[in-house]
């Protein structure tokens, strides 16, 4: 299959998040950027699907500045065949989706992967938007996928359980944990990644529909109140009278 995997880069999961003094942006000093964990699953699963059928290509695409290239190279080292970078600051989800849809529209991909959500802005929106722009069916938060012929069988999380659905290619899916174990690049992968094609394309349009007015750090907790482990009645009374949650 001809597969496209959307890859975003995000602050490492251990990052202590702080904002610039004007509260307009993330303080990126000292922050290490990684491939969004769900996108690593998408890349891995795309490779696995093609390995099973013994053919096809995996293209990764990122909307971002030149600073994303180390992570794009990592995706290539994991095994993707080629990469596309749309050269623009990804400041709005619709803008990102539109750039990717513009590129994909003429390419006839059988399958498109996004992550369930980015672990920075946590929107879970880019996948659905791309699918709608391309008029494709999409299955969100998937935990398993097989494709035979042009029929995909996909397992997805739903409220209170899971469900198996069938859908014909082309379609879009969003990767969730459990889909697979992320592949770790080996030495050979890292070497060959350097020479794999990475195409840089200029962004098309600047339709931004949302804007961050202000960030806020979470309000600090008042501090924990310790309760004697032998006095659970006191905890219950506090939860009822003080916290009002019982």
């Amino acid at each position: 299959m001809k597969i496209l995997v959307c890859v975003s880069q995000v602050p490492d999961t251990t990052t202590k998040i702080t904002f610039t003094p004007d509260n307009k942006s993330l303080n990126t000093a000292g922050v290490q950027f990684i491939i969004n964990p769900y996108d690593e699953l998408g890349i891995t699963k795309a490779l696995e699907l093609n390995e099973q059928t013994g053919g096809g290509t995996v293209t990764v695409i990122t909307v971002g500045g030149a600073d994303t290239e180390p992570n794009i190279r990592k995706a290539l080292a994991m095994g993707a065949d080629d990469a596309v970078r749309i050269d623009a600051e990804p400041t709005d989800a619709f803008f990102v989706a539109q750039q990717i849809a513009n590129y994909a529209a003429s390419q006839n991909f059988d399958l498109i992967f996004t992550g369930r959500e980015s672990i920075d802005y946590n929107g879970g929106q880019v996948g659905g938007m791309i699918a709608e722009l391309l008029n494709l069916p999409h299955v969100n938060v998937i935990t398993a996928i097989t494709v035979s012929g042009n029929t995909g069988s996909v397992e997805r999380d739903i409220d209170g359980g899971r469900e198996v659905v069938e859908v014909a290619t082309p379609f879009l899916v969003s990767a969730q944990k459990d889909l697979c174990e992320p592949r770790i690049p080996n030495m050979r992968g890292i070497m060959t990644a350097r020479t794999k094609p990475l195409q840089v394309i200029a962004a098309n349009g600047s339709d931004k529909r949302t804007e961050v007015a202000q960030f806020q750090a979470p309000a600090p907790k008042a501090g924990v109140k310790f309760i004697d482990p032998n006095n659970m009645d006191e905890l219950v009374s506090l939860l009822h009278n003080e916290a009002k949650v019982l």
């Binding site: 602050p11 999961t13 990052t15 202590k16 998040i17 904002f19 993330l26 672990i119 920075d120 802005y121 946590n122 931004k208 529909r209 949302t210 804007e211 961050v212 007015a213 202000q214 960030f215 806020q216 750090a217 979470p218």
Partner: peptide, 13 residues
Amino acid sequence: VFSNKGFADFSLN
């Protein structure tokens, strides 16, 4: 945003 490590006010334009 940032997995509950912050909040953001977004304007919807």
